[in-house]
C-alpha cells in the first residue's frame, strides 16, 4: 500500500508542476486537478513496483529534499562553473595530460554513488568511466593530471573537488 501512495502522490505533484498556470485555483483549474488525480492513480497502479523497487523511503524526508535543492543551487553550480572555465582553458590552449585513475568513493548506498558519479561528470576535469561494484570504487578519466600524480594508486573522493566538499554534501543528502 505504501508504494502505491508514494508513487501516486509523486505523479500527481509532477503533473501539477507541468500544468502550472492553467486556471484560477491558485495556479490550476479544476479540470487539470481532476485529470491529475486520475493520472496519478493510474500511474500508482502501474508503476508502484518499479518506482519503489527496494522499499527505501529515505528521500521522502523534507530536510533531504531541501538539502538537495540547496546543493544543486549552491556548491554544484560553483563547481560546474569552475569546471567549464577549466575546460575552456584546456580547449583554447590544448594543454592536456589525460589518464584514468581509481577513486575511492566511500559511499555506501547506490543512490549516493549515482549522485557522486553525476557530480563528477559535470565537475572539474573528470568523467566517470566505470564502477567497481564490489567496493563502490569509481574509475574516472581526468583531463589534466599534475606531474607525479599518476604514481598514486587510489585517490580519495575529497581530493578532486577544489572549493566545496561535495562528497560530504552527498553523504548528508542521500545516506
Amino acid at each position: 500500500m505504501i508504494p502505491f501512495i508514494v508513487t501516486a502522490s509523486v505523479a500527481f505533484l509532477f503533473y501539477l508542476v507541468l500544468v502550472i498556470g492553467s486556471g484560477p485555483v491558485i495556479f490550476w483549474s479544476w479540470e487539470e486537478i481532476l485529470a491529475g488525480v486520475i493520472i496519478g492513480l493510474a500511474t500508482g497502479i502501474i508503476c508502484r513496483k518499479v518506482f519503489c523497487k527496494n522499499e527505501n523511503y529515505r528521500m521522502l524526508c523534507p530536510a533531504r529534499l531541501v538539502g538537495l535543492v540547496i546543493y544543486i543551487c549552491g556548491p554544484f553550480l560553483v563547481e560546474l562553473t569552475k569546471a567549464n572555465l577549466d575546460v575552456a582553458y584546456r580547449i583554447i590552449t590544448g594543454r592536456i595530460r589525460p589518464g584514468i585513475i581509481r577513486l575511492h568513493s566511500g559511499m555506501k548506498s547506490d543512490l549516493a554513488l549515482t549522485m557522486l558519479a553525476h557530480s563528477i561528470t559535470l565537475t572539474p576535469g573528470t568523467l566517470s568511466v566505470n564502477v567497481d561494484e564490489e567496493n563502490h570504487d569509481l574509475f574516472i578519466h581526468v583531463i589534466h593530471l599534475d606531474e607525479g600524480e599518476e604514481k598514486k594508486e587510489v585517490f580519495e573522493a575529497e581530493e578532486i573537488f577544489a572549493f566545496m566538499n561535495i562528497p560530504a554534501w552527498i553523504r548528508r543528502i542521500a545516506e
Binding site: 589525460p98 589518464g99 568511466v129
Partner: peptide, 20 residues
C-alpha cells in the same frame, strides 16, 4: 565512455590507465 572502453579503445595520449 564505458562502452568505448569496453569496445577496446584505449585513451590514446595518457599517462596512466588504472582501469585496464
Amino acid at each position: 565512455a564505458r562502452a568505448a572502453h569496453k569496445s577496446g579503445q584505449k585513451p590514446e595520449p595518457s599517462v596512466v590507465d588504472r582501469l585496464s
